[in-house]
Nucleic acid binder design. Structure first.
Lengths: 117, 117, 117, 117
DNA sequence: GTGGTCTAGACCACG
DNA sequence: GTGGTCTAGACCACG
């Protein structure tokens, strides 16, 4: 997997997992790839994957079953969406439009480069 | 000044200075606050302010006059606007709308919390 | 059966068995549930039950009769009580009261939530 | 520092820090030992200390000031006490008295070994 | 097999 | 100086 430099890898892994959940590829309650397996697949240290799983567990999106691995919780998708949407609506969007305004831009100025609005 | 924890302070200072320039409070060619003064005003290490001024200098927005301090260049506002707008249109906006779409949100969902669109 | 996450499952099984013995539900010398049966009843790996039985055997509380299964020893209840009481009095209780003291709490502070003192 | 084997070291460090806070040795708002310094003092890897500090930060007991180290929050002692007391009253105490009861012991049986009740 | 903890050591961003 | 991230590698408990 390709990582970019601006964001810590473990956060990019969190984003990756969240995307799998939100897009329904990894359904609620299903088992997620074992730490070491995902680490190998992503050419990353298992530590780094573990850290991401840990954070997701703290958010109630994953749970560990002893000796059996990590599983998505029953409401993993719901929770993920809620958290992501909330941050988007309450924090990212206001900042986005504030900057747009400051730069003297309007929605129209963006449409060329941002099809699909 | 209040800083948030997610973003490095020196970047927040860059943002602050850019805002002053774009909004015309600090006009082209004018002298900017001395490093130590701004540092004191913001309760921040002068190192940190220097780092921000350095970055702005690299972008042709500021220049040092030895023994006289930092000044905005003749086209500081123009350059700032250009750089910020370009990054906004080419990078931030597409990412923003892509995520909005991924989360199943529409512009309407944001209007309550984002007045001034 | 419900397990909590903090304690290894096999220890929780040991606790469960000890409780059965101390409360007289499983009398001295009686046969205990076969490993696989208890495992099934508890929705647990037989490995895990075996591990608990093993530990109890090491403490002289259970014994294996080849081809016949696990049995409680003749003095299983006596031994269990002795071991548990000893650990309770010599280790758990002192630690408990020391912490209570450190936290500025008294027995009275606990009575509401701990009926049956 | 001496550690016992039953509990992960990083948790023992959390306990150590909590004790310093609760006993008032490390007052609210004060700076705590730098990660590497405490690690050296305890003959432990800095990773391990960082992990403990991280957990305390998540509980609102510590905060990082960029480039300046970890500090106790303004209500660190209050929070610590609250968390520890809560767990003691709601979880440890009920379990303690339940086991005491199961073992046929009374408070009196403990007094010899647990002076200062 | 599966996760959890720990170490030694490197390198980096920030102040 | 101070924390943050990452790796390689070891060892362990649990199932």
């Amino acid at each position: 997997m390709e990582f970019h430099a601006e964001k810590p890898i473990y956060r990019q892994i969190i984003d990756f997992v969240s995307a799998r959940i939100v897009e329904g590829e990894w359904p609620d309650g299903s088992r997620v790839p074992p730490v070491r397996e995902l680490a190998a697949r992503m050419s990353v240290n298992s530590h780094t994957v573990l850290r991401a799983y840990d954070a997701l567990q703290a958010d109630g999106i994953m749970e560990v079953r002893r000796g059996m691995g990590y599983y998505l919780t029953a409401d993993a998708r719901e929770r993920s969406l809620q958290m992501l949407r909330r941050e988007f609506i309450e924090s990212k969007a206001p900042a986005f439009f504030a900057e747009m305004h400051r730069l003297g831009l309007s929605i129209e100025d963006l449409t060329t480069d941002s099809p699909g609005i």
